[in-house]
């Protein structure tokens, strides 16, 4: 399968950075488009004023990260789109992939302990379970 649109879930972590690097290489080889999605969590319970503040904060935070990613994408001549979404990471990445007809999702894997995964759940595992397109889970190297 040669992907035409790759979507990367990015939370700014080291494993997400590795996943983006691999996705970029793949996109350059396949001449595919690349989208990067970062997801901010709303306050709980959510309130409009607080949510807007969280959105503003997340947007400014991720914009700095996205500047770096754009430069790297330009070097590889890969078209890149970036988005900051709000909600649950799994839901938002899956919705973004479906809405933009991504044919490959790339996410990092934190390699957390079994206890931590049991307590808070694994984002990558849930994406693999529920995605309707192929998913590449990349471990940090």
């Amino acid at each position: 399968m040669i992907p035409t649109h790759i979507l990367v879930g990015h939370d700014g972590s080291r494993d997400a950075e590795t996943a983006f690097g691999d996705a970029l290489d793949l996109a350059a080889l396949a001449r595919a488009r690349l989208s990067v999605v970062a997801v901010a969590s709303p306050p709980e319970p959510p309130a409009e004023v607080e949510t807007q503040a969280a959105i503003d904060l997340a947007t400014s935070h991720y914009e700095r990260l996205f500047e770096t990613l754009r430069r790297r994408a330009q070097e590889h001549h890969v078209p890149l789109q970036t988005y900051v979404l709000i909600g649950h990471p799994v839901d938002q990445i899956l919705k973004a992939a479906a809405a933009h007809a991504a044919d490959l999702i790339v996410v990092g894997h934190r390699g957390r302990s079994a206890i931590r995964e049991w307590v808070s759940g694994s984002t990558s595992r849930r994406i693999v379970t529920h995605a309707t397109c192929p998913v590449l889970v990349v471990r940090a190297r």
Binding site: L69, L80, Q81, V84, G87, A99
Partner: peptide, 18 residues
């Protein structure tokens, strides 16, 4: 930019071509 209705409009600040 708000991708499939996930967000209010201002959130998706980075819808740019790289």
């Amino acid at each position: 930019p708000a991708l499939a209705g996930s967000l209010p409009q201002p959130v998706a600040a980075g819808d740019r071509e790289g």
